[in-house]
Amino acid sequence: MKFRCDQENSWFRAGPVLGQPVNEWRYVRPIIKLSKCNNCGWCELYCPTGCISEEDDEVVIHLDYCKGCGICANECPKDAITMIDEEEE
């Protein structure tokens, strides 16, 4: 008998859950125009996947975890984010 799990039952110690990259889910992606951005932080608060953060006073979108939902673009009060086709460079 070959077992893979050392537990008797199907529950186990929770490690840090990093999540799976979701690049493949996306057909549009957000592009941020930093000249328009005033670092208000709403996109960071509103991104459902939690993939936007402020680094060195600059808003950064971690595209690995971006599902392309477009909420950031819709909620940005400065219209600093646009959604572009995933095929575009």
Binding site: V17, L18, G19, Q20, P21, V22, W25, R26, P48, T49, G50, C51, H62, D64, Y65, C66, K67, G68, C69, G70, I71
Partner: peptide
């Protein structure tokens, strides 16, 4: 939560 769960976009 993990970065990006299995929930639908948006």
């Amino acid at each position: 939560l993990s970065a990006a769960t299995g929930m639908c976009p948006g």
